[in-house]
């Protein structure tokens, strides 16, 4: 991954990489971190997800939008191993990961958050963070009772946790139970905790849901920082202002299918997208009403 020079940010690099791409569903990208093929998930008679081909560009912020029930969260669950597909396969960094259990997906560097925030309520904020540190020797039952084997690593994890908590302005809450945080602070904690895993791809499921406007601005800043730190971000969101503001690329799902993708300004004018949100006949006159 090229390090950004002093005047080109990673945003410019991502935008440059995506510049020449035709905005059509399933178009291939110059450097995809995820490539998915024929992903189908059915719930009884309902096909919740039916994605024929999708690539996610590395180093960019990609938004996944669509009306309620479009299959965005289901697609998220499939990619991260939290749900099983009926057919299809996908790869992460060129490695096939379809069928891999969620904890292994996370260890490979693909970490998600949840639409309903999953803070660990009766653990302190700092323990929420420390839990997420990777390759902890003390997490093995054989070494757990021998603190001298993992004390040094624990100290390092604590230091990194505190650094992230400072960055996310949660350091004052260090020793509070996670349940004592506000909804927005829990979203911040969940994002900070995901970063403890040192992911390459961060997948955020509705990061702005239930967050007050002031905190929204700081969350937006944090998401942009993820890209500047070299991570790839894929997020599901309903807040169109946010999508327009921070995403480099937008993918639109409707009824399980990808109906459009492209840069935000182009996608939001796309007829298929407007139809998906408002219905295909929203601007035609209702003849019967005239009479």
């Amino acid at each position: 991954m090229p390090a950004p020079s002093q005047n080109t940010s990673r945003r410019d690099i991502a935008l440059a990489a995506l510049a020449g791409i035709t905005p059509t569903p399933g178009v291939s990208k110059p450097d995809p971190i995820i490539v998915a093929d024929h992903v189908v998930r059915k719930f009884g008679g309902l096909t919740a997800v039916n994605v024929s081909h999708l690539e996610i560009q590395r180093g960019a912020i990609t938004a996944l939008i669509g009306p309620n029930g479009a299959g965005k969260t289901t697609f998220f669950n499939l990619l991260t191993g939290f749900d099983q597909v009926n057919e299809g396969s996908w790869s992460f960094n060129g490695v096939k990961i379809s069928g891999t259990p969620p904890h292994k997906v996370a260890r490979m560097g693909m970490v998600r958050t949840f639409q309903l925030t999953k803070a660990l309520y009766r653990l302190t904020v700092i323990d929420n963070m420390r839990l997420a540190a990777t390759k902890q020797k003390g997490e093995s039952i054989l070494r757990a009772a021998l603190p001298f084997l993992w004390n040094a690593q624990e100290k390092a994890a604590t230091a990194r946790s505190e650094e992230l908590l400072t960055r996310f302005k949660l350091i004052d809450k260090r020793d509070d139970f996670a349940a004592a945080l506000s909804g927005g602070q829990r979203k911040l904690l969940e994002m900070a905790r995901a970063l403890m895993v040192e992911p390459e791809l961060v997948m955020l499921d509705e990061p702005m849901a239930g967050v007050n406007p002031a905190l929204k601005q700081s969350l937006l800043g944090h998401i942009k920082d993820l890209r500047e730190d070299g991570m790839t971000v894929l997020f599901v969101e309903h807040d169109m202002d946010m999508v327009r503001d921070i995403s480099d690329w937008v993918i639109v799902m409707a009824q399980g299918v990808i109906v459009a993708e492209g840069p935000p300004n182009i996608v939001m004018r796309d007829k298929a997208v407007i139809d998906a949100y408002l219905g295909a006949h929203h601007d035609s006159t209702l003849e019967q009403d005239r009479g």
């Binding site: 991260t80 904890h103 260890r107 998600r112 949840f114 660990l120 009766r122 997420a132 905790r193």
Partner: peptide
């Protein structure tokens, strides 16, 4: 203790 609180969150952290 984290599993007691929320299994899915623990899975998502590897």
């Amino acid at each position: 203790k984290s599993i007691r609180e929320d299994e899915e969150a623990v899975r998502s952290l590897g």
